[in-house]
Amino acid sequence: MNKISRILIIAALLTMVIFPAFAGKGANSLTIAGSTTVLPIAQSCAEAYMNAHPEADISVRGGGSSVGIANIIAGTVDIGDASRHAKTKEIVQARAQGVNLVENVVANDAIAVIVNPSNSVSALTIDQVKGIYSGSISNWKDLGGESQPIVIVSRDVSSGTFEVFNEKVMGGTQVVDSALMLASNNAVATTIKDTPGAIGYVGIGYLGNNVKGVTINGVMPSKETVLNKKYPIARTLHMYTNGRPRGMAKKYIDFVLSPAGQKLVEDNGFIGLN
């Protein structure tokens, strides 16, 4: 190796170490990605914010909670939406990569267990739901309904909704192989609507006229039962940032947390923080 080559390499090495790296994003632009559960909140708040602030440029996309947190760690989004808490693995990975994951709670939610409106069953217990999803209960007649096979619909294993359901209902027990694993709340609700013997679970914001929510341990998911902690499959919804929100991310999250933003949360069927 000649001396000039060596000097050039060392100079380049030093330049890289002391090089001040500046980010060049626009001050009014904001990128959000992640949970499909949080997606309607993020979208409606983005639209309302941009209507009030025409200079703002907010892009929102889904992908799932894992995608939201992975993108915050990678630095490719400003806000990562998640319907679960960050895992220890993600926290360690973020810290090692210089990212301080800060969880901003923006709403409350319940995971509602839903069935087709034609189904006569209206009440289940956590143990019964676990029995259905683990395969030990396979016909509605065993639960007081008509004799028809249960069609199990679940979220894909990378979704935050699945993680919370798995923790609070399944306790780590495997979901039966025959379950349909769908990629979004919307896909689950649509499948339940179209399949008479089906059971699924969605964020409370996706409860509507086309599907029927059932009580769990005698409690129907609602604002009241979530806030008083009586409904057993409740959770908080989050917008993760790298460090405390700053700039455009802070303005946007402040808006989500404002009375106007919290009204949008409730308009979308979720439960506000207060």
């Binding site: 890289m16 790296a21 500046f22 980010a23």
Partner: peptide, 13 residues
């Protein structure tokens, strides 16, 4: 072994 890496995505798009 010493290995510095610099990400140019933010600087250059």
């Amino acid at each position: 072994s010493i290995m510095p890496m610099i990400n140019l995505a933010d600087l250059t798009n």
